[in-house]
């Protein structure tokens, strides 16, 4: 798609042909991102609703099952994500100041955190697989030893895997997007000369972080 600048400023970011000027383009992008995040909220919202219903229905059982989850690893992951949220906010800040090096550094740190998160998540998943907690045919729940209904254990772990899995998928997509953004910044691509793309990525990343902020207590910290 052809882009053409309406302003004389050579430093100004490219404006796509459907927009009048850069302001309109930026506002539109940000509004579009927010609408997209609304759909994401509904997407996860349905899962959280399902979770709440069953948690309420099988309160005692869920307490028993949650002990399977490692709240220390989960806690580390929470910290990692919070740190990454901070660094992505910094990236937006530097983008506004047009400090390219710092911006890249901040994004790089975010990327690092994201990888760290996924690695820790992978370790956790690995343990669950070892202990036959993945809800397929190999699933085992020793009810005699731990108590709790095996079917509900299966339900709990299906919710665990589908919700953290979907979240993990979002982290993965985040990694790809941040990586691509860094590539464009490094290349001084014309669409990237202002802060809005970074801001959009930041919004998305904050959302991913926020989802985890809910997931962590709901799964790892169930009170008796």
């Amino acid at each position: 798609m052809a882009t053409h600048a309406h302003t004389a400023d050579p430093d100004a970011p490219a404006v796509y042909e459907q927009f009048e000027d850069i302001d309109q383009q930026q506002e539109t992008y940000i509004l579009g991102m927010w609408s997209f995040l609304v759909t994401e909220i509904m997407f996860f919202g349905a899962l959280f609703l399902i979770y709440s219903i069953y948690r309420w229905q099988y309160q005692g059982d869920f307490y028993i099952f949650h002990k399977e989850l490692d709240y220390v690893l989960g806690g580390i992951n929470t910290t990692v994500l919070l740190a990454s949220s901070f660094s992505v906010a910094l990236a937006v800040h530097y983008a506004q100041l047009k400090k390219k090096r710092q911006q890249l550094l901040a994004l790089g740190f975010t990327l690092l955190c994201a990888f760290g998160f996924l690695i820790i998540k992978a370790i956790e998943y690995g343990k669950k697989f070892e202990h036959s907690k993945f809800p397929n045919d190999t699933f085992v729940w020793d009810a005699a030893k731990y108590g709790g209904d095996p079917e509900h254990a299966r339900l709990f772990f299906s919710l665990y895997f589908s919700m953290t899995g979907l979240h993990g998928l979002h982290v993965l997509i985040g990694i790809l997007v941040i990586g691509y953004l860094m590539y464009l910044i490094a290349k001084d691509h014309p669409v990237i000369t202002d802060y809005v793309p970074t801001e959009l990525v930041g919004l998305y990343w904050h959302f991913v972080d926020l989802v985890w902020i809910f997931l962590y207590p709901l799964f790892y910290l169930i009170p008796k």
């Binding site: 997407f43 349905a46 809800p135 299906s158």
Partner: peptide, 29 residues
């Protein structure tokens, strides 16, 4: 507002068929 909800719901049915997770089937809780 609506489409994401049905999308995830239908997807959970697929998971239920594949992994027999019990979100919507009484036999599985």
């Amino acid at each position: 507002l609506g489409t994401p909800v049905v999308a995830i719901t239908l997807f959970l049915v697929v998971l239920e068929r594949t992994f027999r997770i019990g979100i919507f089937s009484p036999e599985l809780g």
